[in-house]
């Protein structure tokens, strides 16, 4: 059973940026792309469990702040060592200016 969770307002995230979102003892990262689409992944890097929220968004890539590993935040795919393991992604929708995330 999974529910849509109200994570933040769309304006809480700048374009080409991300924020950290904690819910139910877990941590997530919510992204806003340059073309104004929203995405959500697990919040911790799969290499050494560092928060991705301090990282850098470039195009559709999130770069981890610790060792510059990279993921495609739309698919969670690991793109650059030292990350090897993909990142889990979660569905997102926008309603009334709010970003909702479905957490499984």
């Amino acid at each position: 059973m999974s529910d849509w969770v109200d994570a933040c307002a769309i304006d809480d995230i700048e374009e080409e940026d991300l924020i950290r979102f904690d819910h139910g003892g877990r941590t997530f990262a919510i992204y806003r792309s340059a073309d104004d689409a929203f995405f959500c992944t697990d919040g911790l890097c799969t290499h050494e469990q560092v928060h991705l929220a301090d990282g850098l968004v470039m195009d559709h890539i999130i770069e981890c702040p610790k060792h510059n590993g990279q993921f495609d935040y739309r698919t969670g795919k690991a793109l650059r060592a030292p990350v090897c393991e993909d990142l889990a992604t979660h569905p997102v929708k926008v309603e009334n200016g709010r970003v909702l995330v479905r957490i499984g």
Partner: peptide, 10 residues
């Protein structure tokens, strides 16, 4: 060395 340098930063 990509891996060893990652460890140096951790």
């Amino acid at each position: 060395w990509r891996w060893s340098h990652a460890r140096h930063h951790t």
